[in-house]
Each structure stands twice: as C-alpha cells, then as structure tokens.
Amino acid sequence: MNSLFAIVPHFPVADWVEAATDWLTQTLGGMFDVLQTIGQTLIDGLTSILSIAPPALFIVLIAVLAYFASEKKWGLPVFVLIGFGYVLNQGLWSEMLNTISLILVSSLVSIIIGVPLGILSAKSEVAHAILKPILDFMQTMPAFVYLIPAVAFFGIGVVPGVFASVIFSLPPTVRFTDLGIRQISNELIEAADSFGSSGPQKLFKVELPLAKSTIMAGVNQTTMLALSMVVIGSMIGAPGLGRQVLSSLQRAEVGTGFVSGLGIVVLAIVIDRLTQALARDKKH
C-alpha cells in the first residue's frame, strides 16, 4: 500500500492556494480596500446610532419590542430587562453594542446574498447541484479556517470578522429558502399559473409568502451562527464581548471570562427568541 502511494505524484495544494491568495490580494487589492472602508464606516455608524439612546431607554425599547413580538406575553420582556440590566451593571454595555452591530451587519449581508441564492437553487436543478456541495463545504469547514482568507484580504479589524461570519453563517438561509419554496404544493403553483401569473408575480405573491416561515427559520439560524463567530472573530480584531472573553482566556481571568460569556449567552437568547417570535407572528 505504501509503495502504491509512493508512485502517486505529489500535488502542492498548499502552494497553489498561497499563489491564488496572493494573486487575488494583488489583483483585487483596491476592491478589498473599498470594502474595508465601507464595512468599517457602516459598522461604526450603526454602533453610533445604537449608542444614541441611553442604555435604560434602549433596554425598555427592546423589552417593548419583545412584548409585542411574543404576542403580549411577559416572559421575554422580563428576561430582556433582567439580562440587559445585568450587562449594563457589569460595565459591558459598549461591548454589547459592538457585538450587536457585528451580528446585524453579518446577518444582513448573509440574508441579502442567501435568499436570492436559495431562490435560484429552488428554481434550477443545475444551480442546486452546484450550490449543494459548496454549502456542504462551507458548513463542514472549521470556523477558524475562515479567519485565514479574512486576514489575507482585509487585514486585522472588524471587517475581516464580518467576512468570516458571513461565510460561516450563509448556508442556513440558502438551504431554508430552497426548502421553503420546494415544499409549496404543486396545486398552489398550478392555481397561480391558471390565473396567468408571471414568474415574478408567482414568486413574490405566492411562493415567498408561503415559504416565509421556513425562510425565517433559516434567518434565525444564520443570526445565531453569526453570533457564534463573535469570540472567534475577536482573534482577528473584531470588537465586542468576544474580545473580553479572549482577553480573559489569555490572562486566565476566570471571573471576567464568565461575566463576558454570560453576556453573550443573554444576547444569544434574546436574539433567538425575538427572531422566533417574529417568525410566528408573520406565519399567523
């Protein structure tokens, strides 16, 4: 067996990847610089907007949103008041706002890219066959690997963190959009065709509304995956609660790490419950 592998020529895959990365960096360096500037400006602006409201008012507004999103039930609003109050009490408010900005931008970019790709995958078997292995690759690749091209293209900072988060969190939106459209019964599609609906009319008035709950489930998963990249993204300069956890790990500060980690848990629960509640409202 060893002799069999000995006669197989060695393929320098690592060298090929390095060469491709260098070529992309040199050829598209200007585009990466523009994206870096736009991304940094967008995230800084969003963080500034979130910082306009006093923390107490911000917490109350999120609690009110949670109250109406959860069909006027008090469980989620009370948790928002207690959880965000804890974050404010521990002096992590600005870090949480930075984390929210990172999650919002990463999720928004993933949704803008993922929904059209999901529609394309549902409409075309060729596109589905091409996208499926790519999405499998994106979901099985360890998250840390995405930091390498992010740093190579954008350097250190918040934008490479967004880049890595988008790649990591994109697949659920594509898959769930594809699934939601494919699950629509043929009878409804035939009824739309019988009324003379055009392709865009059928898509926006029949298929997407019927698939909305499934698509929202994908959005929920995408948002949670973007949040899971917070700590990993901090390794390449992304700000927020993840940076506090990473700093605590480097200094072996168990207490500080626990406090920051619990802040991420609070934010994760609030985002998860809000997106689920909004999906239920839209479904009904």
Rank of each mutant, 00 (worst) to 15 (best):
S260N: 06
I100R: 01
V158F: 07
P54I: 11
V126S: 06
F154Y: 13
A279Q: 11
L249W: 06
I111H: 00
M224K: 02
P77D: 06
T177H: 02
T25E: 14
S248K: 13
A122I: 02
F144I: 09
D22S: 15
N98P: 00
S121Y: 03
G29N: 11
S260M: 06
A211T: 12
I134R: 00
P12H: 13
V13Q: 09
M141C: 14
F258H: 08
F32Q: 13
V78Y: 06
V266Y: 02
P239T: 06
Q40W: 08
A143R: 03
V259A: 09
D272N: 14
I215A: 04
N2Q: 15
M224E: 03
V80T: 11
L267K: 11
V266G: 13
L88T: 05
I232L: 15
L135S: 02
H10E: 11
K283D: 15
V64W: 12
Q183K: 10
A127Q: 12
I130L: 12
A63D: 14
V105I: 15
G261C: 08
K72D: 06
L278G: 11
F154M: 06
P77F: 08
T27E: 03
G157E: 12
V162K: 05
P209K: 01
E95M: 11
L278M: 15
S185I: 10
P116Q: 10
G75S: 08
Q183C: 05
P142N: 08
F204R: 01
L147C: 00
K212P: 03
P116K: 13
P149N: 04
V270L: 04
